[in-house]
Design a protein around this nucleic acid. Structure first.
Lengths: 342, 342
DNA sequence: AATCCAGGGCATAGCGCTAACATTGAGCAG
DNA sequence: CTGCTCAATGTTAGCGCTATGCCCTGGATT
């Protein structure tokens, strides 16, 4: 193996073509495994490329071919557990294609989302997967004009620009309310994030209240937080809401992490879960499996959403159908924190 | 606001230049806020660009200018909590620059790392931040020849290609061993992941054993797992190791998540923590704050590592010094699961 | 009045690669 | 031996943008 000194100017196809005595075009064909090249040439070119340490320049390649094998994935956060799982679903599918996901994070800000989207579109990806249906007008316009497949994920309560894959958070909240009421709970509190931009949490709450209303109930009390360790916040909020409204018999948490904190709090304080007080969260995160008791939750179909979205941008689902909305059915996991009957 | 029909062929500088009656070059200058352009022209151009919905093509721009404002960030996983935090540190710093992080995930496989690195380098980023010091020979060669700043993070026990920012996991393990021994524990078990490629966990264990050896102790028993919910695995492994070796008086977990599972298990089974049995994890994750008792742990300086690494690639630290190794000092957080003295 | 110069703008030439066609030469039927 | 085919390679012309240098205009300087 020849030792070549580290090149100052980075290598180009021309360097490889000179080293192997064929034209640039042939080298290009070899490296992309495209077209007819004799085995002898192929071997020679590959050897040259390897020994030089040549790394193709996709920027030039993309410009020339007008093809970019990237899919923009825009999500609010990486620390929410949920989104890494969606990413896993996306990667699962894209790994079998030439496409690669590129992730952008918005921190739940639509302005930042607009900026991230602009930046990503300027790399001309071949598809966009973006969380939520709520965007700035400019962002919607960009999506609509991009001329590539757009998939809005997680939520289907609204009008997508192109495709949508997700669950109805409104209905999820509604179902949970019905289940809780059916189990005989009557004095219900809600605990969630103080994030005006988290539209999905908002829709769940709205659906929940609607569900309660249907059986003649209303929310007894509520409590919001922002920032900090979710598990700890769950404890604190639970303490605080129970101090204010000691006679609550059910606590509905907007996510599993604070729900878990609440559950730990209740157990430590010797409360009778689920008889005297019931608990439920949302998302069905894996974490719950390790808790002393399994928190009731509702699966948000994260993996399936990621997969479907990826299939759409990869053109693996009959795109002939045109724009489509795929609604998943979240399933209620009663766990051990909702009593079985009245 | 004029409504322009969605363009089939995507817009170019030429479209904007025609719409605003100046040359492409002038449009380019305006959009990059570069060079002298009169206010009148600037306003006109910006208006045209906006009304057309023009999104610049960075591919062409990057090719022409030989400058790409991307930083490749290559990490093993997104579901480990640790890495999103490092990313936060990186973003904090890069947000004040023109640079943007692009994340690649290797799933703890060096082969996959090599592939991801190749792919990312082919986009000619202006820097690389990569977890760990262990890479395939080809990956090392690519890094060495890339001609851009390379920062290997998380670990400093080894020889970096260029810069390194991290902690010594060997010493972290060693310190923990000393602290445990000093507290009077004698029959010590280790619980960790069955991941041969997780070199940092391996180094911690090695350092830990070395630390025990120094005071004449050896590991009494150990237990490994792979896959699944870490919290649940922590429980199961704890049950299993205590069944096999009931007289252990300390359990050292390779990460906080399984440690938390173990802690919950011990508390539920009425064990006397930390008197009869002590526990410790690693990472100092936020989650621990919400547990019934605070697990002893060691902070891995994740945020600081991310920040420093980003500063290096952004050229914010005096690059004049050339390649450098920055070692952080992880601090022991005794929590409530190591007894204070014998 | 001649000269200078800076601000504002334009024309040209690539960046490194690939699409699309052109070319070559070997193999082979007639 | 001609003409044809087809596999293997080469040639040409951009992709959309920016670096560079040049040109023009209209005051300020001498």
């Amino acid at each position: 193996m020849a030792l070549i000194p580290p090149p100052r100017r980075s290598l180009t196809l021309r360097d490889v073509s000179e080293a192997s005595g064929v034209s640039e075009m042939t080298v290009s064909r070899v490296l992309r495994a495209r077209g007819d090249v004799s085995d002898a040439t192929r071997t020679r070119v590959l050897a040259a490329a390897r020994s030089l340490g040549y790394v193709p320049n996709k920027i030039a390649g993309a410009l020339a071919s007008q093809r970019v094998n990237l899919v923009a994935v825009i999500i609010p956060s990486l620390s929410n557990m949920v989104f890494p799982e969606v990413l896993t679903g996306i990667s699962d599918v894209l790994d079998d294609t030439v496409l690669q996901p590129v992730v952008g994070v918005t921190n739940y800000s639509t302005d930042r989302e607009e900026a991230v989207l602009y930046e990503m579109l300027s790399w001309r990806p071949s598809g966009v997967i973006i969380a939520g249906l709520e965007h700035t007008p400019a962002a919607r316009a960009m999506l609509a004009n991009a001329g590539i497949p757009i998939v809005e994920i997680m939520d289907v309560d609204g009008t997508p620009v192109d495709h949508a894959v997700g669950i109805s958070h409104r209905r999820a909240g509604l179902h949970m309310a019905q289940a809780i009421a059916a189990a005989g709970y009557r004095r219900i509190g809600f605990l969630g994030t103080k994030m005006p931009e988290d539209h999905r949490a908002r829709k769940r709450l709205e659906g929940f209240q609607e569900g309660l209303a249907k059986v003649g109930l209303t929310l007894e009390d509520q409590e919001f937080y922002s920032g900090g360790s979710a598990l700890l916040k769950g404890r604190e909020m639970t303490a605080s809401i129970l101090k204010r409204s000691p006679d609550l018999d059910f606590l509905y948490y907007s996510n599993d992490m604070i729900g878990a904190g609440g559950l730990l709090y209740c157990l430590e304080h010797g409360m009778d879960v689920p008889e005297k007080i019931g608990l439920a969260g949302f998302n069905g995160v894996e974490l719950l499996d390790g808790l002393p008791r399994k928190l009731a939750s509702m699966d948000a179909c994260r993996l399936a959403i990621g997969r479907h979205a990826a299939q759409i941008v990869a053109g693996l689902r009959d795109a002939a159908t045109g724009a489509q909305i795929i609604e998943m059915e979240p399933t209620l996991q009663p766990g051990d924190t909702i009593r079985v009957r009245l």
